[in-house]
Structures are given as structure tokens and as C-alpha cells.
Write a protein that binds this DNA or RNA. Structure first.
Lengths: 242, 242
DNA sequence: CAGTGGTCTAGACCACGGT
DNA sequence: CCGTGGTCTAGACCACTGG
């Protein structure tokens, strides 16, 4: 069903409808979709708007178009086409685990010169510091601290931190991320990591640091994350193109 | 210049024109492009056609659009400097260090069922096992063990292992790698790693495992590598696209 | 041949950014 | 306020696939 008066664009509503149909199995691999002209008539919209919807799905790789033949549901993508920037929640879901979180601390800090310089803000600017335990199937996996500048994300509340922070940024705040820079190193767990992750003294952890940059002219950093992952039950995985 | 009667679509001709301008430096990072309406008038085409051209460039990541402001040349093409599969030697050179190696062992093994299954060969097939200390500026960085099936790489000698193994594969053996799958985890150094890397008992190391696949129809694995990296002087770094 | 997706037009209204 | 990109319309002609 389409709501033409919604603030959500029509093409997006239609794309979403087909995403759902494919996800729920109402449409299966190889199925033929209605033609553009049929869809335009059915939804009583212009054919160009239909094309915009269908084009989104094509770019996502979930449908395939063939001139003169029609539009078909594509085979399942071979494991997300290469290594891409993903949030913790997205990553965990890809592994078929169930992500959850426990908020430990959210506060506003200033005068942290390292964080300010990484985020490219003034040392007196307000920066959210958010500490969470990130879990998969109720098991603690990582202790994560996010720094994000208030002047770029506005007011945050606890509700915004119940799931994927990328999801909040991209959908609620309409801040789109272009890319991220990550480093991964190994260390021995400190006391805080031992406590929250339920591991022993001397156990190794993976330390990941990431800075994510916005999709705009200046490519400003919008988050700086430091995470410590339990190494006994978590590995970083990637598929890299040569 | 645009040829409206060409078989090449107008939007493609316009996109190509801007690609060239950016590549040749006529347009630089941050430059503002003409607005859609200006371009439509200049080329005497419809605004929707201009949008199609500009949208191609946006998808390629070479321009950035901002509502109410305009269209700008993006700071970099992410296509090239995304995280790519690199050999140890290539990686070290990128960091402006000088790679070198010390060969510890090269032999042919059989009947290792784990290695055989990863490399997709029979358990009786001959597999090279090559153990090397990999160094940067004469400092040991990693202890690396490569497994590679003889039937895919042919005869190897010590000369082939003085530098980048990827270089040997791709240039001498003309075997081209399509992609690799990597995992990274943390562990406490074992005795062999302590000895060769010059680190202490209880020190953490980064364990990287990689399988590299050939650029052919079957996408056969050509190498399986296990490496232990000193974590005090080495981090994994990547830039990932969202 | 009829139907498909690919391209293109000449308009329109909207939300947003900056003046 | 004006100019920007984002969305949308109701048409049109083309090249291609298949019967």
C-alpha cells in the first residue's frame, strides 16, 4: 500500500514493498516482477517514479533487469559483496546472531584534546561519550565507547542507543556515512574489560578503533569508537578484493 | 561537447565529460559544479537527463551533492584507496617501512586434512609449507606460515620466497588472485612466536589467517596463510566504504 | 508483432541552505 | 527571499527479446 501524501517518497515506499516481498519469500529467486507500465498503472503513478524505485533495488543487487524480457529477483548476494563498513549490530546479524546492548554510561564531555582532534572539533565543544556493552545472543562480546560531537548529531537520548548507532544516524538524524577508518590491535584485557566482558586476568582482547566520516563536502568525522572485543568468541572477518 | 544523435546516451557523454575534467585537474577537490538547471540550459537538454549524468558520478563517489547548496567534487575517489588485499611486503611498503624476510623452513607436506580441505585439494596432494619471519626495517613483525598446493603453483625454490609471494605468483607464475578471505583474532604468544618475534611471555599477538582465491571460473584457493603479528608495533589498518 | 526496459522531454512542487 | 537538489508527472521514441 502506498501513501502519496506521506513524507516518505513514493519510490522509497515501493522499493520497500518489494524488499519485503523478497525477504518474506513472497517473491523468490528468478521470479518475474510486474513491468514498469503495469506498476505505474497499479499504483497510479508515473513510470519514471516506478523506475526510480526499481533502480534502487537494482543498485542493491536484489533484482536483475533484462531489456526486452523483464525484471527478475536476483540470486542471493554472495555474502555482502566485499568488505564494507558495518555497525556492530549489522555485523552480528550477518553472523546470524541476535545483537543487544546494555548502556553503561552516557554523558557530555569537553576538553579531551585527543578526542576533539580526531573528531575535528574545538576542545571546548561538547562531545557525547557513550559506553555500552554489546552482546550477541545475550553473551557480552565487546565493550564499546563512542564519541560523537553534539553539534553534528544534536540531542541524543537513551532511546537512540538501544540498537545500531548507524541506524540512528542514518534514519533518524539523516546523517549519511561515507566511509570509516579502522585499526585493529591486540592487548591484554584491563580491569574494566575483564569486569564487563566476563573474562580472566591475562586474557587477550581485540582493540578496534574506528572513525566514521560523513557523506558531505567536508567529509567531517561524526563518530570515534573504541571497542574491546572478547577474542575467544569473536574474530574479525573480511573478504577483500585484490 | 555533446552529440545528441550519437548512439552513446547523452547522460553518459556528460558524465564522461565531468570524469575527464576531474581526472585532468580542470576540476579539483571541493570545486562547485554548475547547477542542474544551468547544465540543462547549457547543453539544451532536460533537467532529468542532467540528473541521470550527475547521479552516475555520485554513485561512483567522485562527486557529493548537498541539498540547498550544490554539487561538489569529492575529496578522493574511494574506489582506489579502499581496503584491498595486499601482501605483507606491499603492506609494509605502504607504511614507508622496508620489508625483508628470513626463511625458516620450506618443505612439502601431505595428509594434513585441515589444510587440504581449506585449499580444496586431496589429502594426499603435495602442499608446500613455508615458514618465514617477516620484518620491517630489520625488526621482526610477524611469523608467517604459507600453505600452497604444488599442483597449482608448480616448483618453488628459495629464490621465489625472498620477497612478496604475491609478486611471485602474479609475475613469475602468472597466477592472478581475485580476492582473499581474512580473519583476525587476538591470542597470547606461544613459545615459537616468543622466540622468533623477540617478545615476552604473556604478550598478546594478532593472529591473521587468510585464504586467497584465483581469478578463474572455479575461484580455486591458491594459498592459505597463518601469521602471528607483534601487536606492540603493528596494527591492522583499513579504510572501508559504507 | 506486442511487450519490455532504456532514454529523454518540459514542465511542476517540495524542503533545504544561505542572504 | 532565491537558488539548490529531491521528487514527480504524463507523455514520447528507441532497441531489444520472444512468439
Amino acid at each position: 500500500m502506498i501513501d502519496k501524501n506521506s513524507r516518505i517518497p513514493i519510490y522509497y515506499q515501493i522499493a520497500e514493498e518489494f524488499r519485503n516481498k523478497i525477504e518474506t519469500g513472497q517473491l523468490e529467486y528468478g521470479d518475474l516482477l510486474p513491468s514498469e507500465r503495469e506498476l505505474a498503472e497499479a499504483y497510479r503513478i508515473s513510470r519514471m517514479t516506478v523506475r526510480q524505485a526499481i533502480n534502487e533495488l537494482k543498485l542493491e543487487g536484489i533484482i536483475v533487469r533484462e531489456k526486452g524480457k523483464g525484471t527478475f529477483v536476483a540470486r542471493r548476494k554472495f555474502e555482502q559483496d566485499l568488505s564494507r563498513l558495518t555497525s556492530f549490530s549489522e555485523d552480528i546479524k550477518q553472523r546470524d546472531w541476535e545483537p543487544s546492548n546494555k548502556l553503561i554510561e552516557i554523558k557530555i564531555i569537553t576538553d579531551d584534546s585527543l578526542v576533539a582532534s580526531i573528531l575535528n572539533v574545538g576542545v571546548k565543544d561538547k562531545v557525547y561519550k557513550i559506553k555500552r556493552i554489546r552482546m550477541a545472543n545475550e553473551e557480552p562480546i565487546a565493550l564499546e565507547t563512542v564519541f560523537t560531537p553534539q553539534k553534528r548529531v544534536g540531542e541524543l537520548n537513551e532511546q537512540d542507543l538501544t540498537g545500531s548507532f548507524y541506524n540512528t544516524l542514518e534514519n533518524k538524524l539523516q546523517l549519511h556515512i561515507a566511509y570509516g577508518e579502522e585499526t585493529i590491535e591486540a592487548a591484554i584485557a584491563n580491569k574494566e574489560e575483564m569486569k564487563y566482558l566476563g573474562i580472566q586476568q591475562g586474557d587477550p582482547v581485540l582493540l578496534m578503533q574506528r572513525t566514521s566520516f560523513l557523506q558531505n563536502e567536508a567529509a567531517l568525522p561524526v563518530e570515534y569508537v573504541k571497542s574491546a572485543y572478547r577474542s575467544d568468541i569473536y574474530k574479525f572477518k573480511m573478504r577483500l578484493k585484490r
